[in-house]
Design a protein around this nucleic acid. Structure first.
Length: 431
RNA sequence: GGAACGGUGGCAGAGCGGCCGAAUGCACCUGUCUUGAAAACAGGAGACCUGCAAGGGUCCGCAGGUUCAAAUCCUGCUCGUUCCGCCA
């Protein structure tokens, strides 16, 4: 959520910042929020004045009663009348409050001043790279991973579909081992600074609202109606809410955490896209890194987290590049955001394998994560940042295609060897 | 799933419908004392909204209800503990 007070005191700044996202209807929502806020403060003032009177009268009644004064009855009647008026105003206040909250929850975050302007993903500037990109690929590398996986007997999507329906994948044998190896690798590489967490993967609506998926993007998530729980689309969701509703001490920040989790996505808007192979599916594995921080710590943390994600991809020896997300392509909650893309010669495509973002106080305000500076009075809203350390399926696919040898085998990147039980190459099953 | 009990400030823990934003202890902060600290003593100190401020309002798990007045009474929910049942 954006800060209502900023909207109230400096609407021009908010308008200008949101205008950069290039969605005209946003500005209408802003005006709506501004007028609701003004109205809310008016009636709250009225309501509080009434409450003050009622409170005062009630005290009087108490005193009169004690003194045995019959005037108490009169005062009670007066108070009752005021109380009725207060009830009406209170109901209205509540209504306006809810309406305002609903509008605010749907307004996206303000882009960082340094975030590049742009209308769509075509305008995302290149930050670094391409790295490790050979001048040309051999023919044996220009085979899509779904063909490689099938030939090696390590990808069995047909049976995944039999079990669970379209857009589910299944890895078998060394394919499954490779998936797990990637997770281990990502976790081990960040264990120096990040606490490993194994969070719940079913969460409440409140939790899913904190990170920004609700109320606007309910269609993108799996919902278990009977128990009123949602399947997480990323470990960002439970990790962000880990400190929800708490006041942290400044000394606890930055709190750095990481988690492996399955991720569940309905992919409602993309039916039919990327249906082959492992580029898009309803369930996949990911290792996420996340930090809760002070505003001052955040810029450096953002850079650090991009570096960490880059190091993982680079360590695998895959061709990659880093781009920055422009204002028109930014996600709802993002303040500033970088993507790492890996080139897959079989698909002939740059695949987004990691996204590192700074949310400023947008998520923390929704989640009510605050911190206290030293012995200073009062609290401040914290900042949150997170990034995929490693999203398994697309990296898995890129390894298949980039590392395919002339003999049809796939070479395991060196950094994964410790997790592969001695396997250096995945070779076709000889039958 | 069934039953019993419970949810009060950073923690522990009192609280007759009005004198309760809430005793007390610990922890914390500031002073006095001390070379410094500890101890002792004195004082201070919650969060949120609104307001330039003074002030006002809200918050005792959550939501309703009763009442002139609710931490306190009633209802529903939720979470926790324990016991039973079930179970990897």
């Amino acid at each position: 959520m954006i800060d209502v007070r900023l909207l109230r005191n400096d609407p021009a700044v908010v308008r200008a910042a949101l205008a950069r996202r290039g969605k005209p209807d946003l500005l209408e929502q802003l005006e709506h929020a501004i007028s609701l806020d003004a109205r809310l403060r008016d009636i709250m003032l009225e309501r509080d004045a009434l409450r003050q009177q009622v409170n005062g009268l009630s005290k009087e009644v108490g005193a009169l009663r004690k003194a045995g004064d019959t005037a108490a009855e009169e005062v009670m009647a007066k108070s009752r009348a005021l109380g009725d008026a207060e009830t009406g105003l209170a109901a209205e206040t509540e209504q306006v409050e809810l309406a305002l909250r609903d509008v605010l929850l749907r307004i996206p975050n303000l882009p960082h001043p340094d975030a590049p302007n742009g209308a769509s993903d075509h305008d995302n500037p290149l930050v670094s790279g391409p790295h490790h990109l050979p001048t040309q690929f051999a023919d044996h590398q220009k085979v899509p991973h779904w063909e490689i996986g099938a030939a090696l007997g390590i990808l069995d999507n047909e049976r995944a579909v039999k079990i669970s329906g379209a857009m589910f994948t299944m890895q078998r044998g060394l394919g499954a081992t490779l998936s797990r190896a990637l997770c281990q690798y990502a976790l081990d590489s960040n264990a120096d600074e990040f606490e490993e967490v194994r969070p719940p993967t079913l969460v409440t609506s409140a939790t899913l609202t904190a990170t920004g998926q609700l109320p606007k993007f309910a269609d993108d998530a799996f919902f278990i109606e009977r128990d009123d729980l949602w399947c997480i689309p990323t470990a960002e969701v439970p990790l962000t809410s880990l400190y929800a509703g708490e006041v942290l001490n400044e000394a606890q920040l930055p709190a750095k955490m990481m988690a492996y989790s399955p991720c569940y996505r309905r992919e409602a808007g993309s039916a039919g896209r990327d249906t082959r192979g492992m580029l898009r599916s309803h369930e996949f594995d990911k290792v996420e890194i996340l930090a809760v921080a002070t505003p001052e710590q955040s810029p450096d943390l953002l850079q650090e987290m991009v570096k960490r994600a880059e190091k993982l991809i680079s360590g695998l020896g895959l061709p990659y590049r880093i781009i920055e997300i422009c204002t028109g392509d930014m996600g709802q909650s993002h303040h500033r955001s970088f993507d790492i893309e890996v080139y897959a010669p079989g698909c002939d495509a740059w695949l987004e394998v990691s996204s590192v973002s700074w949310f400023a106080d947008y998520q923390a305000r929704r989640a009510d994560i605050r911190f206290k500076r030293g012995t200073q009075k009062g609290t401040e809203i914290a900042h949150t940042l997170n990034g995929s350390a490693l999203a398994v399926p697309r990296v898995w696919a890129a390894i298949m295609e980039n590392n395919r040898q002339a003999d049809g085998s796939v070479r395991i990147p060196d950094v994964l060897l410790p997790y592969m039980r001695g396997t250096t190459h995945i070779v076709p099953k000889s039958e």
